[in-house]
């Protein structure tokens, strides 16, 4: 097995399996992140307390910020492996068809989401960079250091900065499209999709995509429209 893994990863199926597993890690993270975000509706104290708890998780068994750091490392590794596999498969696909069709290639299967996976993924990456600079490193946040997480969120999506809200909503919708195909696709990649559970898996993917999209966009929209201040 120890020798098998690198060889597995070199194969096209192995690369997709890596994408499925890392994608699953990221989906679970998104769900947890979304539930945390919704605390904003319980008020500033709850939200900030939750934010602080993320750093004190596991104390006193482990030192301050240990579990959060471990989680961050897992996420960074998952994102890198996910992108690495995707890029490798995209380059391989380009090499596999050096002469393109003259006639416009018609798509007969699946739907819109499937065709957004590659460029959508790149836009999501750009969004993540912005999002980290904004609410993790406070570089592009109007409030920045010295304020509470709640204050930073409220300042960020202020009605005067509507374009930031639009950017966040668009990015989250792309994440939703990504999940609508990705969650279902992961099951097929790992060989867990059968003719009998296909409808269930499509439903699951749609539900996960819908919940994540609505959960995430509710926060910036509520701030912009003044329902949270």
């Amino acid at each position: 097995m120890a020798i098998a893994i690198p060889k597995v990863y070199r194969s096209t199926v192995g690369k997709k399996a890596v994408m499925a597993v890392t994608g699953a890690i990221l989906v679970f993270f998104l769900l947890a992140h979304m539930i945390g975000n919704l605390k904003v509706f319980l008020g500033a104290d709850d939200f900030d307390h939750y934010s602080e708890w993320l750093r004190t998780m596991g104390e006193p068994a482990v030192p301050h910020r240990t579990l959060l750091t471990v989680l961050e490392i897992v996420l960074v590794v998952a994102v890198i492996l996910h992108m690495w596999s995707a890029t490798s498969l995209a380059l391989r696909a380009r090499r596999a068809r050096p002469v393109k069709y003259q006639s416009r290639k018609k798509s007969h299967a699946q739907g819109y989401a499937t065709h957004t996976m590659r460029y959508g993924g790149v836009i999501i990456l750009l969004f993540i960079v912005w999002h980290l600079l904004d609410l993790t490193f406070h570089v592009v946040n109007p409030k920045g250091d010295g304020y509470t997480p709640y204050e930073r969120v409220v300042a960020d999506f202020d009605a005067s900065r509507w374009y930031i809200t639009v950017w966040y909503v668009l990015a989250v919708v792309l994440v939703g499209l990504h999940l609508n195909h990705g969650v279902w696709s992961a099951f097929n990649t790992l060989g867990w999709r059968t003719p009998r559970n296909d409808r269930t898996l499509r439903g699951l993917a749609f539900a996960v995509a819908g919940v994540v999209t609505l959960g995430f966009i509710s926060v910036p929209l509520s701030v912009t429209f003044g329902w949270v201040s």
Binding site: V13, R92, A96, S107, A109, S185, T189
Partner: peptide
């Protein structure tokens, strides 16, 4: 053999 022949990888598009 499939990979060595230069075919691409499946991304479950269903085409």
């Amino acid at each position: 053999t499939h990979d060595a022949e230069g075919f691409g990888g499946c991304t479950n598009t269903g085409e």
